[in-house]
Design a protein around this nucleic acid. Structure first.
Length: 502
RNA sequence: GGCCCCUUCGUCUAGUGGCCUAGGACACCGGCUUUUCAUGCCGGCAACACGGGUUCGAGUCCCGUAGGGGUCACCA
């Protein structure tokens, strides 16, 4: 790629949170801009469909992008020389270009109703032929358009496709040619006077001096249309690169439907939007690294790269052509590795973000304690795992629910040996001097010695008493976290289980 | 259905005619470490969709078949 100024854009529609597929598209564009000095990453909001507009979604998308570390050089909140960056604020511009096309005879008004169009399509379906919009013999004159408008029939504007094959020179897929008879006259201005995606997109890409368009492969069939408009308007065609699509492990497109389905089954809904991963306890570093490897690779055996390393190695020519399935297990593994790689400060910051976003009660703990918790849980996969593992230490005694299996196995087994140890422990622990891990270790060692048992025989009953389950961080640290009073109360509470029917 | 794209372990991928007895990562299986859960370390299983060509030689090039996907809106 030449050293000419690279200008790329990410152009989401404000219909909800940032989807994981969109995030990958944004990332690749961002990487391309950063790869070349002077490169610019433009963010443009494609809000030309008022019906689909979702309140606050622009803010959410901006937040998701920033969370991933993808700051834009031009766009909402930061401005730029080619704004406005909301298409809804550029209506006059689109109208001007549409009019220019109409004046040149490259586009024309038509007045079919949606019902009429549907009827024509239905007929084609019945005849098992492909529907192509039949271009009228003669285009409406300016007077006829005006007359129709005054009757309340504004009509739509259709682009007159040149009767020739169009070849897309895709940076990833190579040459893709569509024959003339595959291309129909499509709508560029809707009945409400707003442009369609095709028109707005082409005009903006030209006016914003976009040099490379990296977008999902679902746009491939749109590209000949865009090229046709560019030619009619005298715009240069940017370089196109159509990215492979990201699927679920099931092979279906990752969609919000999956979330609804899982919820109905009472399962934990799968993460689909970037925000889901944030709430799920993932590090943006891990998610970003993982999605960069969907459709792209370094060419050697290195996978876990920092953003900077990714920038330095990224090349459009290394992007693959086949669709990829989103393997959550591998993401989980990446997240575990990244949790061990980032600085303590970064990890703490991210953990606090997780607690805040989830409204967890642990968000009120101080940094030192939170940092300690993180260290105790080293090897965790997500922040959710951390909270699952140590949350009990910060919960009220009455919130501790005893896991029946753990109670049976650890406390009742061997004629209630666990209960016996617990009773012993209660006495010994009262006498511990400083309530800190070192002293506690000595105390437990002493009990083991006296009772002639292994540490496990002491630690497990204690763990069940403190957490209700057989899982917790190292037992000394766990004791320290729960505190002397809490520990004694919980042991007492566990001892009460002995007399309850199993 | 028309058109278009794709096809290497279960998954993400390396591989651009001989370096491939096909490499890595995740998952999985086994072992070691360990007071629990994890982590960590060591080892193992596992793929060129199929059929024809081209070539001394094909995962790599060509054609076909099959399979998967995208797209056929006054959505983007």
């Amino acid at each position: 790629m030449s050293s000419e100024m690279v200008r790329v854009r990410f152009a989401p529609s404000p219909t909800g949170y940032l989807h994981i597929g969109g995030a990958r598209t944004a990332l690749f564009n961002w990487l391309l801009a950063r790869r070349f000095s002077g490169g610019k990453f433009v963010l443009r909001i494609e809000d030309t469909d008022r019906n689909r507009h979702v309140e606050d979604s622009v803010d959410k998308i901006l937040e998701d992008l920033r969370w991933l570390g993808l700051q834009w050089d031009e766009g909402p909140e930061v401005g730029g020389d080619y704004g406005p960056y909301y298409q809804s604020e550029r209506l006059e511009t689109y109208r001007k270009y549409v009019q220019a096309l109409v004046d040149k005879g490259d586009a024309y008004y038509t007045f079919d109703t949606p019902e009429e169009l549907e009827r024509m399509r239905e007929e084609a379906r019945r005849a098992k032929t492909n529907f192509r919009y039949p271009r009228p013999e003669r285009f409406a004159t300016a007077e006829e358009v005006e007359a129709a408008r005054s009757e309340g029939r504004p009509g739509v504007v259709r682009f007159k496709m040149p009767g020739e094959a169009i070849t897309v020179n895709d940076e990833i897929l190579g040459e893709v040619t569509l024959e003339a008879d595959e291309l129909e006259d499509f709508v560029i201005q809707k009945g409400d006077g707003w442009p369609t995606y095709h028109m707005a997109c082409v005009v903006d890409d030209a006016l914003m001096k976009i040099t490379h368009v990296l977008r999902g492969q679902e746009h491939l069939m749109n590209t000949p249309k865009h090229i046709a408009i560019q030619r009619a308007l005298g715009f240069t065609t940017p370089k196109y690169a159509h990215l492979p699509i990201i699927f679920n492990m099931s092979g279906s497109k990752m969609s919000k439907r999956d979330k609804e389905k899982a919820e109905k089954r009472g399962e934990l809904p799968p993460e689909i939007d970037v925000f889901d991963f944030r709430v799920g306890g993932y590090l943006p570093e891990a998610l970003r690294n993982f999605i960069s490897l969907l459709g792209w690779s370094t060419g050697d055996n290195e996978e876990q790269l920092t953003l900077e390393e990714t920038v330095n190695r990224f090349a459009v020519s290394d992007i693959g052509r086949s669709n990829a399935k989103f393997d959550r297990d591998k993401l989980l593994s990446f997240n575990r590795d990244w949790s061990g790689r980032v600085s303590e400060e970064r990890l703490l910051e991210s953990f606090k973000d997780y607690l805040a976003v989830n409204g967890s009660g642990m968000r009120r703990l101080d940094d030192a304690l939170l940092g300690r918790v993180l260290r105790l849980c080293e090897g965790f996969r997500t922040f959710r795992d951390v909270v699952n593992k140590v949350g009990f230490a910060f919960a009220g005694d009455e919130e501790i629910v005893f896991d029946a299996k753990a109670v049976k196995k650890v406390l009742f087994k061997n004629e209630g040996a666990g209960f016996a140890i617990l009773a012993q422990l209660a006495e010994s622990l009262v006498a511990v001097g400083d309530w800190e891990a070192g002293r506690l270790e000595e105390c437990l060692a002493c009990v083991c010695d006296r009772e002639k048992v292994k540490l496990g025989a002491v630690a497990q009953p204690l763990r069940v008493a403190l957490s209700g389950t057989a899982v917790s961080p190292a037992i000394y640290d766990t004791l320290e976290l729960v505190g002397r009073e809490g520990t004694l109360r919980r042991i007492k509470r566990a001892l009460a289980l002995k007399d309850q029917p199993q």
